[in-house]
Each structure stands twice: as structure tokens, then as C-alpha cells.
């Protein structure tokens, strides 16, 4: 069986130690504060980013990796492991051109390379969970086709819900997708946001007030995972205490096997803004 190597991008929010542990390559997107460019999760980390965001008078913007950025990573891997297979899983093509850049990079490589670029149709640890699951499957001896099948199946099984303090960031960055109808309301409406099968942001419900919104997410998750043991990842905009409270609330309501808390990367943070809280839940993995 041929060797398989794995690539993701910085928006998968996989912490450095896990990337190192599983030897996952990461291609960074970019954050621009005015003229200044940072490499997401490399030259700018979440903590620093959110502090900067709070005081900056210009709103940051972001850009996708160039095809060459991908090309360099793919070439490096093929130099290390000439006949390997690469599985490269990326941010939703409905939200970013990152996937497109990876596909272009592939077209610049020799024909016949075994490179599979997967549109996660998701963001943050919604990508990360697919990547980590893929690596684990590989370590358990699964072959390429089996791994791709597992990833596709898991994409169907995970649920992502998140809350933003204000929709302003999603709107200004043009990532609001199908939740656009909620903008402009004169009430303090908290849309329960999710990412749909097409990888686009959508609003599954709208409620009044943050507390109700959190309770609504719990209710929605209960409908999704009534009797199942689950794993979950709480993602946040560098607000660990809120994330812990949320995690505690969920632990009281679900049979939670495995919990991770992780900060949203600067690129994601640019588009959701401060005060964002999200949950990625999946049926318990069989590790």
C-alpha cells in the first residue's frame, strides 16, 4: 500500500501540536491589516489577532493562498515521498478560493500524481475534524478509497452551529451566504448559524437574546444527537471562559466522550468577529 500524506489549510483550526503529531502539512491563508500582511496561524496567532482587532481602526481583510503556495507544499511532499498519495482537505469553496487555488496547483503538477483535493464544504474545526479522522483512519490501515469514504460519511454526520455577536463582520466580508435575510433587523436577533451541505453559511433559526440562542443550540443538537455518545469541539474568538461555560452546559446534556476547545484562526476571526462561539458535534469516534 502506498504511503499517504495529508495537507490542510490554516482555517481548519487544527492546533500545531496535533498537526505535528500526525504530520499534517498546513498551507496558511493571509490576513491583511492595512498594508501589513500576516500568515494565518504562523506569523499571527489568535490571541494577538483578537487583541489587535479590538484596537485597530481598520478592519482586517483576508486572502486565499496562491496556487504557488500549494504547489510548493505539494512539491516538497513529492520530493520527500516520491510516489505517495496526497489527501488535501480545504475550506468550503462556497466561502473561499482556497480550494480553487489547490486545484490549480494540481494542474501545474505532472500528470499522474495521486493527489485528492477535498472540498470540506465547511470551516474551522469542521474541516479539522475531517482531516484528523482521515489521518487516524490511515494509521488504522485504511486505504485511500476507504479514507475518502470515511471523510465523506463524517461530513454528513457532523453538525456545526455557531453564534456571532454581530452579523456585521460576516456581511462586510461577504460570507453571510443564506443568512443575509437576518441582517437589518431592529431587534436583538441572534441567528443560529450553521454551514449547509453546499458549504454555505445559513441560518437555521433566529431567536432573541444570547442566552436563548445558546439554549436553542442545545435543543437543536438534542434533535440531531438524541441518544448518541458524542465528541465535540468548542470554537471561540479567544474567549476561553465563555467557551468553558458552553462546554459545561453541553456536558450536562450529552454523553460527551471527547471535548476540545480551540480558538478560531485569525482568518476565520476576520469574518465572524469577536464574541463568536461555535460547536462542532459528531457521533463518538471508534478510536
Amino acid at each position: 500500500m502506498s504511503k499517504i500524506r495529508f495537507v490542510t489549510d490554516s482555517t481548519s483550526d487544527i492546533p500545531l501540536e496535533i498537526r505535528e503529531k500526525y504530520n499534517i502539512e498546513m498551507v496558511p491563508l493571509k490576513v491583511h491589516f492595512g498594508q501589513k500582511v500576516f500568515l494565518d496561524a504562523i506569523t499571527i496567532q489568535s490571541k494577538e489577532f483578537y487583541e489587535k482587532l479590538a484596537v485597530s481602526n481598520v478592519l482586517p481583510t483576508t486572502s486565499q493562498p496562491s496556487p504557488v503556495d500549494f504547489l510548493n507544499v505539494y512539491k516538497k511532499i513529492y520530493e520527500e515521498d516520491p510516489n505517495c498519495t496526497i489527501i488535501s482537505i480545504h475550506l468550503s469553496s462556497a466561502m473561499s478560493g482556497t480550494y480553487q487555488s489547490a486545484v490549480l496547483a494540481k494542474s501545474l503538477l505532472d500528470e499522474g500524481v495521486d493527489l485528492h483535493i477535498v472540498d470540506a464544504r465547511s470551516a474551522s474545526y469542521g474541516i479539522g475534524v475531517l482531516m484528523v479522522e482521515a489521518v487516524k483512519a490511515y494509521e488504522n490501515g485504511k486505504n485511500k478509497d476507504e479514507i475518502l469514504e470515511i471523510v465523506a460519511k463524517l461530513r454528513e454526520d457532523i453538525r456545526i452551529y455557531f453564534l456571532v455577536d454581530t452579523l456585521e463582520y460576516l456581511q462586510k466580508g461577504g460570507r453571510i451566504g443564506k443568512a443575509a435575510s437576518v441582517v437589518g433587523s431592529l431587534l436583538n436577533i441572534k441567528p443560529i448559524l450553521s454551514i449547509d451541505d453546499e458549504g454555505e453559511i445559513t441560518s437555521v433559526d433566529k431567536v432573541r437574546g444570547k442566552k436563548k440562542a445558546i439554549n436553542r443550540i442545545v435543543d437543536v443538537l438534542k434533535e440531531d444527537f438524541s441518544m448518541t455518545d458524542v465528541d465535540m469541539i468548542i470554537v471561540h474568538s479567544n474567549d476561553i471562559s465563555n467557551a468553558k461555560d458552553f462546554s459545561q452546559l453541553l456536558k450536562e446534556q450529552f454523553q460527551v466522550h471527547n471535548v476540545k476547545l480551540t480558538s478560531l484562526s485569525p482568518v476565520i476571526g476576520t469574518h465572524v468577529g469577536p464574541g463568536t462561539l461555535g460547536i462542532i458535534m459528531r457521533p463518538r469516534s471508534n478510536e
Binding site: 435575510s181 431587534l187 445559513t202 441560518s203 437555521v204 433559526d205 433566529k206 431567536v207
Partner: peptide, 11 residues
């Protein structure tokens, strides 16, 4: 009326 209007989801 407000609560009902908010409950409508296009999808």
C-alpha cells in the same frame, strides 16, 4: 405576532 414572524424559516 413578532414571535411567530421570527419563527418563519425560508428553508
Amino acid at each position: 405576532g413578532l414571535s411567530a414572524a421570527l419563527a418563519l424559516q425560508d428553508m
